[in-house]
Design a protein around this nucleic acid. Structure first.
Lengths: 157, 157
DNA sequence: GTACCTGCAAAAGCTTTGCAAGGTC
DNA sequence: GACCTTGCAAAGCTTTTGCAGGTAC
């Protein structure tokens, strides 16, 4: 889906819920869809500060992020330590994450087979799936080579 | 692995790191391994309060939980909303989670095939896996029947 | 006796909320 | 003009930390 189409969807979403299209929401939306990185509310807030426009409060960032999440425009996943990370979703198909515990890098991947097996596992237990999170943790190629991480690569204990 | 063996391991772990075996640690350890549920630090703290013994501070609960996690006795997974949930691990093989978004129930499951595919996906991207988290979200059989959840089961909106 | 531990209470970090002023439709 | 939004600052949560007294070894 193209950026302009997604943007239309967003405006439409706001209209549907009789919400206003404000400049703050516009800027937050744009940043969320311009980046190809995962970001936290705080990161996005910092990006806004770097921009030319007037400052946007942290509260508004959080509120808008919720709005976008509810609307299915972005998704949150957590770093594991009390912080939510967002990524845009529309125009960007579903995928899972490989997280490097050495450097924090996040890679995305997708396996149709895993998706299928998940569906199957859920069904056999009577669940109707709405979403899932698969997070593989380990060391990326670069970190696995570093001596200080050699131990972690060898064991699971 | 039997409870007594796990307990020995725990005592040994403490000794190895020249840490003391205190009554607080003992009680926290016991609770973590007695339960078959997932628990938060706060839940465990509440369980301690219900017991006959003297109260144990929240700080100690957190500290001991970290200790147990480091030692590989328990694992944490997050609910998705700023709260860590623990479960014991030794004497309890690896598994993934099915979480009901309707009632919060957590079911465990394991699929060898998914495990294998994960390994494969990681390897092909140069990652050495240390752990993973697979969390399927949806509605359990009971919740899927409830009218207030019917919508969620059908759509992703 | 020497670390190490504990409890308390305060602090920290992320996120949410109440309220009055301001913007959108 | 009505209602939704914003910003601010304060509060809410879970988790962490400094310190003084207590405990295991």
């Amino acid at each position: 889906m193209k950026h302009s189409a997604i943007r239309k969807k967003f405006e439409e979403h706001l209209r549907t819920k009789s919400l206003k299209f404000t400049s703050q929401r516009d800027r937050i939306f744009e940043l969320a869809f311009e980046t190809h990185q995962h970001f936290t509310a705080d990161t996005l807030h910092a990006w806004l500060k770097e921009q030319d426009g007037p400052p946007v409060s942290r509260a508004t960032v959080y509120r808008t992020l919720h709005l976008l999440e509810e609307g299915g425009f972005i998704e949150s996943l957590d770093t594991g330590r009390g912080e939510l990370v967002y990524e845009h979703v529309l125009g960007h198909s579903h995928h899972d994450h490989l997280v490097c515990v050495g450097c924090g890098k996040i890679e995305e991947f997708r396996s149709e087979e895993i998706e299928r097996l998940q569906e199957q596992a859920a069904q056999s237990r009577g669940f109707v799936l709405t979403s899932h999170t698969l997070r593989l943790e380990g060391l990326c190629r670069a970190c696995a080579k570093k001596p200080e991480h050699a131990a972690a690569a060898g064991k699971a204990d």
